[in-house]
């Protein structure tokens, strides 16, 4: 019997390799996003953007990281020292952990199929993501409260208020994808779409996709909903008092959350690593296709930031509760009814 190439490699090694590749990829993406943010904004404003460190400024994230490491850390007098130190980690770690359940694609090496995901096939994958995504806001709230500064506190409060109002429509639009695919397992949701018919092609899937995209902006505290760090009113919002690497951790957390949201959007509505209208997508095309789709959403995050002005806080709340939530609810109802009436033997 022929032995396959990977049969001698212990399972643990493959697990560790998967973790290293995916987690490293996530952090690298987050770092490059900080560069992309500046480059894209520059191009949209007739500027060049960072171009001094390395070719085309590609080493800028490295230089920034080094700078953050060597800067002095300040802890304001009257701050709650423990929580102040804990908050950046609380913000960054949950957003990094959520990448674990995203199925990025599969590698086929010499006949062996390796899912490119840290934890493939978790049956409550979406619940896990939402639970951790909800935790991430604690970082902002704790940071805002522990800084003992009015700006930070306002930022933290806004972050939590915004998170509550948008998490609802976010979850309701995710549920549409769940209803359409019939599983909470992200791998199964991708499989259900893998024959060329994405969730976004159904009318309710499309509405859910638009709602999810909007809510993901609010969920990751991005423009035009970045009230937690609204500069003109709140200086820097919840991270006003932070400096050096702790500040960078908040940033890293934000960019990781954006990356994961982009990946989740692709997974739920745009068929993950599959091409549209194709019965089967070859595995070697799956990963680039997934990354391209995710990259588009990451670009969209930046693109929107440098296009739209910030909402007013009451407008944000009105949009969340009076517009997004009713639409999301009705949309879920219609999707559920359609699935219930068309599924045979259900």
């Amino acid at each position: 019997m022929d032995k396959s190439l990977l049969s001698d490699v212990p399972q643990v090694a493959i697990w560790i390799a998967r973790v290293v590749v995916i987690f490293g990829g996530l952090v690298t993406t987050a770092a490059l996003m900080s560069l992309a943010e500046r480059k894209v904004s520059a191009w949209m404003q007739y500027r060049y953007g960072p171009n001094r460190v390395g070719p085309f400024g590609l080493l800028q994230p490295l230089a920034d990281g080094l700078k953050f490491l060597f800067k002095e850390e300040l802890i304001p007098a009257g701050a709650n020292k423990l929580l102040f130190r804990l908050a950046p980690a609380m913000a960054a770690i949950p957003s990094m952990m959520t990448i674990a359940v995203i199925p990025i694609g599969t590698l086929v090496i010499d006949g062996d199929t390796i899912p490119l995901s840290i934890a493939p096939g978790v049956d409550l994958g979406i619940m896990y993501m939402l639970a951790l995504g909800g935790l991430a806001v604690y970082g902002a709230i704790l940071g805002g409260w522990a800084s003992n500064s009015k700006y930070s506190l306002m930022g933290g409060l806004r972050a939590s208020a915004q998170m509550i109002s948008y998490e609802l429509s976010l979850i309701l639009s995710i549920l549409v994808a769940v209803v359409l695919s019939g599983s909470l397992d992200l791998t199964k949701i991708v499989e259900a779409q893998s024959h060329g018919f994405w969730n976004v092609f159904t009318p309710f899937g499309f509405v859910a996709f638009v709602l999810f995209t909007i809510a993901s902006f609010a969920e990751t505290n991005r423009h035009p909903f970045d009230f937690a760090e609204c500069e003109p009113e709140l200086v820097g919002g919840f991270h006003t008092e932070y400096s050096a690497m702790r500040f960078a951790l908040f940033f890293l957390g934000e960019y990781c959350a954006m990356t994961v949201m982009a990946c989740l959007n692709v997974t739920l509505f745009l068929g993950g690593p599959s091409l549209p209208f194709l019965e089967n997508t070859p595995w070697w095309l799956g990963i680039p296709v997934f990354l391209l789709k995710a990259a588009f959403f990451l670009f969209l995050f930046i693109w929107v930031r440098w296009t739209l002005p910030r909402f007013r806080f009451d407008q944000l709340m009105r949009l969340g509760w009076k517009v997004a939530l009713p639409i999301a609810l009705a949309n879920l109802l219609v999707a559920g009814a359609w699935v219930a009436f068309t599924t045979k033997g259900g």
Binding site: W43, M44, Q45, Y46, R47, T307
Partner: peptide, 9 residues
């Protein structure tokens, strides 16, 4: 903004 994207700095 996308239109401005490709203009010369």
């Amino acid at each position: 903004t996308f239109g401005k994207f490709f203009e010369k700095p």
